[in-house]
């Protein structure tokens, strides 16, 4: 019996060993793809906007209208840090270019070029360490944004900050090229969504129910309400009012409302990039007295007047005594056990 089994064991062991050996080069290849062919292992961009993708080496940033309108006049310095997977050779060079709207920039060349849509910010500098840090002004990258109003005009524009550098990768695909490249893309999403329409309101004593038609591009709605006048079409950034947010059409306002007070109410929509529409049509309503159940009961002639002073008839004292007796019986029963 054991003689018959031996060849099978041997064959199984051989397959196992071959399988393990096959896995070794496979895992090395995966590592090489991730670490060597891109060369740049990570890029840090010092801007207070979260990247819209999770890829460290090809980061994408979407700048909405509000952020753009803040950044243009402030012209902040943006810090870029590229980290390479290995030490560069002594003769390695790099060039930093900005390419707008996918226009043709020679991104495989270290040489200078400057057109309306392709700027060279730094040319053929020596790449001496594994970590390269550069401080660039916002206006250097977004050279055509001179005024906050330019933000909405340039909705959809892309700005690629490209680091072109002498290739020093050891992987086969990179050795064919003289240069390698890393890009960080900024895209302007600066279009306001449409404001909601068909606004209706119904006021109670201390709450107001608001409803409106859904907006296709909206991911969130903001309801503004104030006891001073609101203007339709106003920029919500300039509005001083209470607000309430919701992800679906319809809301019940209940905070900071005073009875018998007139309120102006408007709604805005917000898209996936955080762009908020202008104020919708403005409707007014006045909070009014509401009769609750107790008031209605009393108005209809109900005799219960509330309170904790017992309304028990003469039997009251006896009843309390009976209650206490029951509780005592319960307690005694438990003690006996």
């Amino acid at each position: 019996m054991s003689e018959l089994l031996r060849p099978r064991r041997t064959r199984f062991g051989l397959i196992l060993i071959l399988g393990l050996l096959a896995m070794v080069p496979l895992s090395r290849t995966v590592w090489a793809d991730q670490q060597v062919s891109d060369v740049v292992s990570s890029v840090d961009v010092g801007i207070n906007i979260e990247p819209t993708n999770a890829d460290d080496t090809n980061q994408r940033f979407t700048i909405n209208l509000l952020d753009c309108q803040d950044l243009v006049p402030d012209d902040p310095t943006i810090s870029f840090t590229w980290r390479f997977a290995s030490e560069p050779p002594t003769d390695a060079l790099f060039t930093i270019k900005v390419q707008k709207n996918d226009e043709t920039c020679a991104l495989s060349s270290l040489t200078t070029e400057t057109t309306d849509s392709c700027l060279t910010l730094e040319q053929q500098a020596s790449l001496t360490t594994k970590t390269l840090t550069r401080q660039l002004d916002f206006s250097e990258i977004f050279s055509d944004l001179d005024h906050p109003d330019d933000c909405s005009v340039n909705h959809g524009s892309t700005y690629d900050l490209a680091l072109v550098f002498t290739s020093f990768s050891t992987s086969t695909d990179d050795t064919e090229d003289d240069t390698d490249l890393d890009e960080v893309r900024f895209q302007l999403a600066t279009h306001r969504p449409s404001p909601p329409q068909d606004l209706t309101v119904q006021a109670g004593e201390s709450s107001i129910e608001v409803d409106w038609a859904s907006v296709t591009e909206a991911e969130r709605y903001w309801v503004y309400y104030s006891n001073t006048e609101l203007l339709a079409g106003a920029d919500p950034a300039t509005v001083h009012a209470n607000y309430h947010s919701t992800s679906t059409p319809g809301a019940v306002l209940s905070d900071n409302l005073v009875r018998n007070t007139t309120y102006w109410i408007a709604v805005t929509s917000e898209d996936e990039f955080g762009n908020e529409s202008l104020l919708s049509q403005v409707v007014t309503t006045t909070t009014q007295e509401v009769i609750d159940f107790f008031e209605y009961y009393r108005q209809q002639g109900g005799q219960e007047t509330g309170g904790y002073c017992s309304a028990l008839p003469e039997a009251g004292n006896g009843f309390v005594g009976l209650l206490l007796s029951l509780l005592a019986a319960l307690a005694l029963g438990r003690r006996r056990v």
Partner: peptide, 27 residues
């Protein structure tokens, strides 16, 4: 206890001007 939008319901009796609170006990 009875709640309105503003909290515990109340009723002002037109005869006595006493404010009654909408809460209590019953045996």
């Amino acid at each position: 206890w009875i709640n309105s939008a503003a909290g515990i319901a109340t009723y002002r009796s037109p005869d006595s001007e006493v404010i009654e609170e909408g809460r209590g006990q019953t045996f």
